[in-house]
Amino acid sequence: MLDSITRFAGYCGKGMMVALFLVALIYLFFQEKNKNHRMIFLYMPVVTLLLYFCPLVSKLVYSFIGEDLYWRFLWLLPIVVVIAYTAVKIISTLQGKKQIVAGISLGLIVILSGSFIYRSEHAFYAGNPYHLPQCVVDICEEIEPEEGKVRAAFPIELLPYVRQYSVRIEMPYGREYILLDWARRSELFYALDAETLDVERVAELARQDECDYLVFWKGKILNGDFMDYGFETVDIVGDYMIVRDVMEKK
């Protein structure tokens, strides 16, 4: 029960929109006369909430979908429809200018109860139709082969994007390094993540992992020259330097 409440609070988040939804349900309980409207948009959400908070149900659901995803149960609450309908229902009971005042006030209440989606910390202006960071597109275009595939190691901040653009680029490690708390990440990852690159070690590890390319932040301090270890600089794209293993081609 406590778990369900915690997850419900997590779903409610920082706004008052769910509270507004509950108030709207109370309003509909007293004001809605249509049997069908009541059944679908009043009784159903109430039964859903009762089931959600029922310990027996949560135990059963946990065993099937796991505790972490229990909050998805709450997707069954028709929050948009119930709030919008209640607002319109209130406005329709009024006349003349009172309708305009009520409409603006209710609109403001909705706005103040929520959080504007386009101000999300995850939203940013897309520089291209792929909606990927432009530097990823540019780097991939630089190293992507027309046929076959290449293998390249990237810094952690670019891992989720590379293969969205091109699956012809293999990676020795990928987004799983961000997603999961890996106890043992690959040595190449740590070597390439260090503030000062031990060039000899990075070159050796890259070759062990059969990497054709290495991509790293251009501001990193290098304790040697990649050319001495069979690598050549391909380009500097945005904030990133690309080097290629040319050992076999020599």
């Binding site: 997590g10 709030i83 609109g107 959080s115």
Partner: peptide, 24 residues
């Protein structure tokens, strides 16, 4: 009142980012 319903629905969706879990 139908367009008004849609306008309120849009407001709830647009300001529906009160948590990362919501359908909106």
């Amino acid at each position: 009142y139908r367009p008004l319903f849609l306008i309120f629905a849009e407001l709830v969706v647009l300001w529906g980012n009160y948590s990362v879990y919501t359908a909106e």
